[in-house]
C-alpha cells in the first residue's frame, strides 16, 4: 500500500513494538508475559512492516528465512531442556544461575529464560512464514 503517512509512522512504530515485545518476553516467568506473547507482538510488528513496505521489503528486513528461525527456536528450546542432563535432573528441569553483580540486586540466568527465547524465535518465525505464504498467494 502506497501511503506516506503509513510508511512514516511504521518506521517509528516497528522499533517501538519490537522493544515492547522484548520487554514482555524478558518479564515473563515471574510476571505476566513470556516468549509466546512476545513473539506474537514482534510478529505483528513485522506484519505492519510488510503492509507498509511490501513483502519483498519484509524479506530483506528479516534477513533470515523465517522457517529457519522457527527451527532454530525449537533447537534453542531443546538445548535448554538438555542442560539439565549434566545436573542429573529430569529433562526440562529449571536450573538457575544467580549472580550478585551489585550488592542486594540479584541477577538470575536460567534455563526457563532460554526456553522462553526459543519459544519467542519459534513464534516469530512461524507467524512470519504463514504471513509470507498468505501474502504471496496473492490476495
Amino acid at each position: 500500500m502506497n501511503s506516506l503517512i503509513l510508511r512514516t509512522a511504521t518506521r517509528l512504530l516497528v522499533s517501538l513494538v519490537l522493544l515492547f515485545s522484548i520487554f514482555v518476553t524478558l518479564r515473563g516467568h515471574n510476571e505476566p508475559g513470556g516468549g509466546f506473547i512476545g513473539g506474537l507482538i514482534a510478529a505483528s510488528a513485522f506484519a505492519l512492516y510488510s503492509i507498509a513496505f511490501g513483502v519483498e521489503a519484509l524479506r530483506r528486513a528479516f534477513r533470515f528465512d523465517p522457517r529457519a528461525v522457527a527451527g532454530f527456536g525449537v533447537l534453542v528450546a531443546i538445548i535448554s531442556g538438555l542442560l539439565s542432563l549434566p545436573a542429573e535432573a529430569p529433562f526440562l528441569t529449571g536450573l538457575w544461575l544467580t549472580f550478585e553483580l551489585v550488592p542486594g540486586e540479584k541477577f538470575a540466568l536460567s534455563t526457563p529464560l532460554l526456553f522462553d527465547l526459543g519459544v519467542y524465535l519459534t513464534v516469530i518465525g512461524g507467524v512470519i512464514a504463514i504471513m509470507l505464504a498468505l501474502e504471496e498467494e496473492g490476495l
Partner: peptide
C-alpha cells in the same frame, strides 16, 4: 500492558 499492546497492535486490523 494490555492497553499498551492494544494501542500498538490494534490499528493493524484497521490498516
Amino acid at each position: 500492558d494490555v492497553g499498551i499492546a492494544l494501542a500498538l497492535v490494534g490499528f493493524l486490523a484497521t490498516v
